[in-house]
């Protein structure tokens, strides 16, 4: 799988990490983030989630985030896979891996990336909960919104 991908298959953190750090003896740190489907959300009991994507644009948006992260932390390399389709409680919906010579950049880049995913990647969750189902909607997606980018940077660098 490419480093940035949207897939219906279960996510494989070990494989993505291996792909990322192969042949890079300069790496001293790998930070990873995994997002899981949670059984409670806003007071509702969640049965499962269905993820939908505008796939070609979502893959490009993931690539864009990797490029943004490398502008801020030039030494990092990053891989990011988002799963779509029906996901059960406990399933991984997203994995992000950042490799870097030093840990600070790897941690920060990971945190930045997940914040940006929630801002600009065209993927939607349909929550099937006890008593109904609902489309979850977060932020209007605007990749050129510098204010949103700044917020993601601030969260990453606290």
């Amino acid at each position: 799988m490419p480093l940035a991908a949207v897939t219906r298959e279960p996510l494989d953190l070990q494989a993505l990490t291996r792909d990322l750090v192969q042949g890079t003896p300069g790496d001293g740190a790998v930070a990873a983030f995994t997002g899981l489907v949670r059984h409670r959300n806003q007071g509702r009991t969640v049965h499962f989630l269905e993820y939908e994507a505008y796939e070609p644009l979502a893959a490009k948006a993931l690539e864009r985030i990797i490029n943004e992260a490398r502008e801020t932390w030039p030494a990092i390399r990053m891989g990011m896979h988002h799963r779509i389709g029906r996901l059960e409680i406990g399933d991984a919906s997203i994995i992000i891996v950042a490799a870097s010579p030093h840990r600070a950049d790897a941690f920060a880049a990971c945190r930045y990336a997940i914040e940006r995913v929630k801002q600009i990647v065209p993927i939607w969750k349909r929550e099937h909960f006890e008593g109904g189902e609902i489309w979850l909607e977060g932020a209007p997606a605007d990749p050129d919104d510098e204010q949103a980018k700044l917020i993601a940077h601030k969260i990453a660098c606290v």
Binding site: I94, K118, I123, W135
Partner: peptide, 10 residues
Amino acid sequence: VAFLPPVSGG
């Protein structure tokens, strides 16, 4: 041409 509601990935 695609129209996209506010996103909720992650």
